[in-house]
Each structure stands twice: as structure tokens, then as C-alpha cells.
Write a protein that binds this DNA or RNA. Structure first.
Lengths: 188, 188
DNA sequence: CGCCGAGTTGAACTGAATCAAGAAACGTGG
DNA sequence: CCACGTTTCTTGATTCAGTTCAACTCGGCG
């Protein structure tokens, strides 16, 4: 749990009282490998910190679903759009490895925003960070080729390429597994 | 200027004192058509409200630059990633029509965050909204075809298709002007 | 041992890129 | 208000990266 505090304090310092208030809201939950954490159509009720494990965000499709995100330990996971708007979610989240989460419910987070000044600040900085990530990804999808995206992933997140089945990575960079297989062959 | 207050109050109510403090920081500035508002490589110093006009965000390239955003009146524009991180910007912003902005500097915004509780709340909700837009766009780029993206634009933002040169829209959708021309022919 | 999912490889197909040229629209100065 | 030059849009021909369909290999697991 101390990891969460550390994570926050990359944004803003928390005194013990603030931290105690925040951490009292957290619920611990564990999942097996290949378990669905949130089903498409449901409404996300949690902002969750990944204590351990790997998760995948994807739009389920009849044939090939579209994977658009992976989350590793020591960061937050949520269907954050569904969470923020409290409307049904257009995608699903599943675990790719045994996973344990510290979860904060929507209502508890609202309380934190109401009752603490630090809450909004951390919430803002977190949303800003998520925005930055999505901005980078948008530019990558528009201006890089799939091959460039694969090479970038390879350099920036090598752990991802080692731990995650290729078919999901292929989908993440926007191509079929076959095409990724050929790219790998070409560049090696 | 009242438009800005209205915009904020879609998020959170502002009392007169808060509004007065905020609005005292705003600087007014106007631009002609086709004027560069921010050059790639510079650092964004402003969060700007578009009172009037149209702007385009793009990565300048030797041959075809990559357009990834348009902003119309009554919303905010900024190279928000560069602004937040105060590092040099990877893209440029130019006007596509005569434009007038109300601008808030980075330092002034930091003051607002420090001195008001409402500031962080609005900042958070604004960042959340920007995040939502980017999330939608990511999914669109991954799971729709260029043709579907064009039709979506056509339904969701028809004003955009009327007022903006096709070549920029093509780039925004992720294809060449020629390909967009053929799509238009096909669907009409 | 046999099954199943993941990855690879091949062949044919397709949508978009590229190269090139012409038509239409736009803006500016006379 | 027209004439000219520039930019934008369209259309055609060719090329190419990635898709699709299909077959085969490999490794793990019941």
C-alpha cells in the first residue's frame, strides 16, 4: 500500500492525515489469470491501483477483439471514461496474470474530492498525465507506421513484449498477428 | 468573456469573487488567418479560450504535415502537453480564420491553482474532459476504417467539414487527400 | 498421447499511398 | 470587377503494406 502513497507523491506531497483518510477507503481484491475485471456494457465503479499483475483493456469482437491498453503493477487501472461519466463502458478489462488490486469506489472518490483540497490537485494531475499518454498515442497512431510503433514499444516497454502474447501486441499497434510476425522477421 | 464563465460553469459553479480573480488574469489577443500561434519547438505558455475563429494543430512535415486537431470558438486551445510539462512542443498551432483569444499564462494558472480551491477542481474536470476526447479518438483510430471516421465526423461535427479544407480533414482521419476524395465519391 | 491456442509462413486480394496531371475555387492586385 | 497565379480538389495508373484465408509447427496441458 505504501506504493500508492509513493505514486501520489510523484505528484504532490501528502501528510499523514490526508494519507490515512485516503487509504481508509481502499478495498483489496484479487483476481486469477484470464479473469474479467470489468465487462463491456457495465459501468466502472472503481479506480484501482495494481499492486501486482497485468491487465488488458480491449473491445470484444466476434472474431478479433481490439486491444488498446496494458497496465502493469504500480499504476492505476480503470475504465476511466466510464468511471468519470458513470455510463456503460464500451470495452472490457481482463487480467493476463494473477492480479491484486487496491480499489477506490466512485462515491468514495467523490467524498475525497469534496473533503480534501489535495484530492482535486492529485485528481487533476492524474487526469493530466492520462491525457499526456493519450496524446502521445494519438500522434503515434497518426504519424508512425505499424513497424515504427512496434520498434518504439520495443525500446520503451520491453517488458511488455516479453510478457504479453503477440496477438494482443499486434492489435495494440493496429495490425493483425500475421503482419506483426512478418515485421519481426523483417527487422531481425 | 462571459462565454468563458459559462463554459466553466458546465463543470462547477463560480462565485463572483472567484470569477473576478480568474478573469483579471486574462489577456486578449487577436490573429489573422493563417497565422502561427505556436511554433513547433517553442514551449506553450498559454491556455487560451477561443472567443472567435478556428485553429488547427499539426506536426509540420516537409511534404504533408499531420493534422490532429481543430478548435472552434467557445472552447479552449493549448498545446496542453507542452504547457503542462513546460517542455518544447512537438507540433505547431495556426489559425484557419481570423481568431481572437483570451489567454491565461502558465504562471497565472499556477497562482490560481495555489490560491483557490475551485481552480484545481475545474482544472481536474477540464483535464478529465480532454482525456475523454483523446480516449474516444484512440478507439476510433484503432477500430474504425477511414471511411467510418469520415462519416462519423460528418455526423458529429458537420460544421468542421464545411469550414475546413479537405486536405486537413484527410490528415485528421489518417489518410491522404486523394483517398478522402475517393471516399467522398464512393459514398455520395 | 492428443488437443488446443499461439505463432509462423505462403498465396491471393485489397485499400490506401504515391506519382502525375488536369479542373475548380480562391485571393490579390491591377 | 476581371485576370492571373496559387492552392485545393479530383481523377487515373501503378505500387505496396497489410488483410484474409489457409496450412503447418511448436509448446504446454489435460
Amino acid at each position: 500500500m505504501e506504493q500508492i502513497r509513493k505514486y501520489f507523491e510523484t505528484f504532490s506531497f501528502l501528510n499523514d492525515q490526508e494519507w490515512h483518510y485516503f487509504s481508509s477507503k481502499l478495498q483489496h481484491q484479487t483476481f486469477q489469470k484470464k479473469e474479467i475485471v470489468l465487462s463491456k456494457g457495465a459501468t466502472e465503479n472503481y479506480l484501482s491501483f495494481v499492486e501486482n499483475g497485468i491487465l488488458r483493456l480491449f473491445i470484444p469482437k466476434i472474431e478479433n477483439d481490439v486491444t488498446f491498453g496494458f497496465v502493469f503493477k504500480n499504476s492505476f487501472i480503470s475504465a476511466y471514461d466510464s468511471f468519470l461519466t458513470q455510463t456503460s463502458c464500451g470495452y472490457s478489462i481482463e487480467t493476463l496474470a494473477p492480479t491484486s488490486l487496491w480499489r477506490l469506489s466512485f462515491d468514495d472518490l467523490e467524498d475525497i474530492y469534496k473533503n480534501t483540497s489535495i484530492g482535486n490537485e492529485i485528481g487533476r494531475k492524474n487526469a493530466e498525465n492520462l491525457f499526456l499518454l493519450k496524446s502521445k498515442r494519438e500522434l503515434s497512431l497518426l504519424s508512425n507506421t505499424p513497424e515504427e510503433r512496434y520498434l518504439n514499444l520495443f525500446h520503451e516497454r520491453p517488458e511488455l513484449i516479453q510478457q504479453i502474447p503477440l496477438k494482443y501486441i499486434a492489435s495494440y499497434i493496429g495490425i493483425t498477428p500475421q503482419a506483426l510476425s512478418r515485421i519481426r522477421k523483417r527487422i531481425s
